[in-house]
């Protein structure tokens, strides 16, 4: 007989439940199976009503993030064998509203992403005949790390400040702001400061540091936020000491 492992999956069916509850499923314990494989096995063979998000199953799309044994992880990158002997608790990402079962509402996060203007902003767009915006490898290295973010929201599920203060822009969005702030082709820093130096911005962060611990792409949002605090403070003092200055 094949060995099995028990999954305790958080269920919430809004049309009949007011509170979520855990449901147990026994799945085959197979080598090289990740938690997502187990969920797919449940969906295909045991209980078709289970809802969850997934797409690429290779750590790129960032849609299968869930709490596994109370830790925010990509379920496509968490092996069943790492969770022995079980049972494995699978729950939706912490601090998010739950739409159904393991599916969370991402609207708030999407708005936050937009707020930090994560795209190249230039004062004047160069006419096409003048050629491309060139960049040295060193200049690219400045922001490379922050560009690895896959928007999986694990850092939000790890950040108690994001949980306590819905207004807080949060780790990934700030790291993404830095991805463009540190880009030599970008001139949008001032616009991003508007969003990030005030209420709910970088200074709401108390450096718990868990965002960087759970990040599957080693983006280090905590470092991005700390660096922003330093430069933001420097700009603030500059604006007080030299009020007629540019920034």
């Amino acid at each position: 007989m094949e060995t099995t492992i028990t999954l305790e999956v958080q269920r919430y069916l809004p049309e009949k439940d007011t509170e979520p509850y855990f449901q147990e499923y026994k799945v085959p314990l197979r080598k090289k199976w990740v938690v997502l494989d187990a969920l797919n096995y449940i969906k295909d063979n045991i209980d078709g009503t289970l809802s969850y998000r997934w797409s690429c199953r290779m750590g790129v799309c960032g849609s299968c993030g869930m709490m596994v044994n109370d830790k925010p992880v990509l379920t496509c990158a968490t092996f069943l064998e790492e969770c022995l002997p079980g049972p494995i608790r699978v729950a939706p990402l912490s601090y998010f509203d739950v739409i159904r079962d393991l599916v969370v509402n991402t609207d708030g996060f999407m708005d936050k992403l937009k707020r930090v203007k994560p795209w190249l902003i230039t004062d004047q767009v160069k006419p096409v005949p003048e050629g491309e915006y060139r960049q040295t490898p060193e200049q690219k290295a400045e922001y490379d790390q922050y560009s690895m973010c896959i928007n999986c929201m694990l850092c939000y599920a790890a950040c108690p400040v994001a949980g306590l203060e819905p207004e807080f822009v949060g780790p990934a969005a700030i790291a993404l702001a830095q991805r463009y702030n540190y880009d030599s082709r970008d001139e949008g820093r001032k616009q991003r400061n508007e969003e990030l130096l005030g209420e709910g911005g970088i200074y709401s962060c108390t450096l718990v540091g868990e965002c960087s611990e759970v990040c599957p792409k080693a983006v280090d949002p905590a470092g991005a936020i700390q660096r922003y605090k330093v430069s933001g403070a420097a700009e603030w003092w500059k604006s007080v000491v030299v009020p007629w200055g540019d920034t």
Binding site: V230, A233, W236
Partner: peptide
């Protein structure tokens, strides 16, 4: 959705120092 300005950069500097 412009954010309310505050003096947090100032307080944070004193906190850090």
């Amino acid at each position: 959705m412009a954010n309310k300005k505050n003096n947090d950069p100032f307080w944070w500097t004193l906190f850090g120092a």
